[in-house]
Computed example of a mutant assay.
Amino acid sequence: MAGHSKWKNIQRRKNAQDAKRGKIFMKAAKDIYIAAKQGGPDPEMNPALRLAIDKAKASNMPNDNIERAIKKATGTLDGASYEEVVYEGYGPGGTAVMVDILTDNKNRSASDVRHAFSKNGGNLGENGCVSFMFNRKGYLVIDRSTTDVDEDTLLLAVIEAGGEEMETSEDVFEIYTEPDQFNEVRAALENEGFTFETAEVTLIPTTYTSLAEQDQEKMERLIERLEDLEDVQEVYHNAELAE
């Protein structure tokens, strides 16, 4: 994990996503929908829903949109019924790619994802073909410009909170946890006064794949195309992309 910052991949997406605010809201609404559907409509009793709402608010999603998504999930408002699907495949240079989908039409989603892979140097694979190359982790990012804490002090706080690992770069502290410890670690650090640029349970590659320049360009196009699809919630990959 050391030396490969997930934060760089997040930063790379942000500029493109800023121009797609409507799609961001749609994806956030789907996150809220599935969390409320699975764990109930009360964010105080449903950590997944609380996290989805926090992410939606961080994107400046209106409260009315948030409430509408929860009502759809609980059946108090008519609307589409969504289900989660994960597609796995290979990108340029043999990179591993996983695509989280939330959709009301699996046939449409499968066709769109397969087309994105085939047109950008990759191919869709069978379930399980690359998932073993990723670990599910809690992931917290603290922007160093928002705190004057030093690395050693924060590391001690992370350890005491139950965090697993911390990486430090010029701009951010990246904190990793076991998935079932994520909410506990997050709450403990928030109680210490820390705020997070990113807070999520995500997939982290166990190894990274270096790409030739030509394959890197194809990989970037594949990621962009997948993230532009309406049903795609998240794209995970193990490509080592240049900044």
Rank of each mutant, 00 (worst) to 15 (best):
Y87T: 09
G89K: 02
G89Y: 04
Y90P: 00
Y90H: 07
Y90L: 04
Y90M: 01
G91A: 02
G93I: 01
G93M: 03
G94T: 06
G94L: 05
G94Y: 02
T95F: 01
T95S: 05
V97E: 00
M98I: 15
V99L: 02
D100F: 10
I101T: 01
T103M: 04
T103D: 06
N105Q: 08
K106A: 11
N107H: 11
R108I: 11
R108P: 01
R108H: 07
R108Q: 14
R108N: 12
R108L: 11
V113K: 06
R114M: 12
A116H: 07
A116L: 05
A116E: 10
F117C: 00
F117H: 00
K119M: 10
G121Y: 10
G122R: 07
G122S: 04
N123L: 12
G125D: 06
G125R: 07
E126K: 13
E126G: 12
G128T: 08
V130K: 09
F132K: 13
F132S: 14
F132Q: 13
M133P: 03
N135G: 12
G138I: 02
G138M: 03
L140D: 01
V141N: 10
V141M: 05
V141W: 04
D143M: 09
R144C: 09
S145C: 12
T146D: 11
T147I: 11
V149H: 06
V149D: 11
D150C: 07
E151F: 15
E151A: 14
E151H: 14
E151V: 15
D152I: 13
D152G: 06
T153N: 10
T153M: 03
